[in-house]
C-alpha cells in the first residue's frame, strides 16, 4: 500500500514539477488505485478511471507495486486517455503502450535524479521472482533482451521496424511492438544527453498535447515529435536532429517532416 502511495506521489511530481500538469487530467483529478486485486493476480492495469494492482502469483511475479515505473506506466495511460486519446490497437496501441513506458521510466529516472546515460531504461525491474532468468519485463535500451527464461521464453520485443510483429493477440501486439517507439525514445534521449525528462520527455509531452488522431501510427507520431522539437528548440537544433536520428535508428521514416 505504501509502495503504491509513493509511486502515485512520484508520478504526480514528475507531471506537476516538470510538465506543469495538475494530475492525469490536468485538472487535479484525485489519483486513485486499488491494491491486492483478486488472488495471485499477475497484472496491473488502468480501467479508465483508476489503477488496479495484483500481488502476483509468487511463482513468476511478485507484487506489481514494487517499482515506481509500473505505477507511472499505469497513470500515464490516464494521461494519454485525456490527451492524445490513442486507441488500443496495432500501431496506435503500441504507441499508447510506449508512451506509458516512456513516462513510467521518466518517473523512475526523475525520482533517482539519473541522467540518460545513468538510467537502466528497464521497465518492471524487480517484478520477476528470483527463479526467473531475467532482469525486467522490457528494456528500452535493448528491446528483446530483458529476459530469456526456460519457462517464460525470450523477451519478444523488436527494437526496429524490421522486427515488427503481426499478431491478433494482445490487441495486435501492443506490448511487443512498443519496443520500437521505446527504443526511438531511448536513442533521442541519449542523443540529446543530460536528464531525459528535460528535453526528450518535454518533446514527447508536447507531442501528446499536439492534437493527434486517435489512430496515429508510428510514422505519424514520429513526424509530430519532430514538429514538437522544431517548435520548441528550432529548425536544425541539436534536439530536432536527435529526434530525426532516433526514428531513423529504429527504421521509421519521417515523411517530409510535416505534422499530422
Amino acid at each position: 500500500m505504501n509502495e503504491a502511495y509513493d509511486g502515485l506521489g512520484a508520478t504526480f511530481e514528475l507531471y506537476a514539477d516538470v510538465y506543469d500538469r495538475n494530475s492525469i487530467d490536468g485538472r487535479g483529478l484525485p489519483l486513485d488505485g486499488s491494491v491486492h486485486y483478486e488472488k495471485d493476480y499477475d497484472n496491473a492495469f488502468w480501467n479508465g478511471e483508476r489503477m488496479v494492482f495484483g500481488d502476483g502469483d509468487g511463482q513468476v511475479f511478485g507484487r506489481f507495486t514494487v517499482s515506481v515505473d509500473v505505477i507511472g506506466h499505469e497513470l500515464t495511460h490516464g494521461v494519454t486517455q485525456y490527451t492524445a486519446g490513442l486507441v488500443y490497437k496495432d500501431q496506435a496501441g503500441a504507441l499508447n503502450e510506449s508512451i506509458s513506458d516512456v513516462f513510467g521510466s521518466l518517473v523512475l529516472q526523475y525520482s533517482h535524479k539519473q541522467t540518460a546515460a545513468q538510467a537502466t531504461w528497464l521497465i518492471g525491474q524487480g517484478l520477476f521472482t528470483a527463479r526467473v532468468k531475467g532482469v525486467a519485463l522490457r528494456s528500452m535500451k535493448a528491446p528483446g533482451t530483458a529476459y530469456d527464461d526456460p519457462v517464460l521464453g525470450k523477451d519478444p520485443q523488436p527494437a526496429t521496424m524490421a522486427g515488427y510483429v503481426e499478431t491478433e493477440d494482445d490487441d495486435g501486439g501492443v506490448h511487443t511492438n512498443s519496443g520500437i517507439p521505446n527504443h526511438a525514445f531511448y536513442l533521442v534521449a541519449t542523443g540529446i544527453g543530460g536528464y531525459a525528462w528535460e528535453k526528450a520527455g518535454r518533446i514527447w509531452y508536447d507531442t501528446l498535447l499536439a492534437g493527434m488522431k486517435p489512430t496515429t501510427d508510428f510514422a505519424g507520431f514520429a513526424a509530430l515529435t519532430l514538429a514538437a522539437a522544431t517548435k520548441r528548440y528550432g529548425e536544425g537544433s541539436a534536439e530536432a536532429d536527435a529526434v530525426r536520428a532516433g526514428w531513423s535508428g529504429v527504421g521509421v521514416a519521417i515523411d517530409g517532416g510535416g505534422a499530422s
Binding site: 497484472n43 496491473a44 518492471g124 522490457r138 521464453g153 493477440d169 494482445d170
Partner: peptide, 10 residues
Amino acid sequence: VRSGGFTGIS
C-alpha cells in the same frame, strides 16, 4: 490463450 496485461507475456 491469455495475452496482453502489463507484462505482455502470453
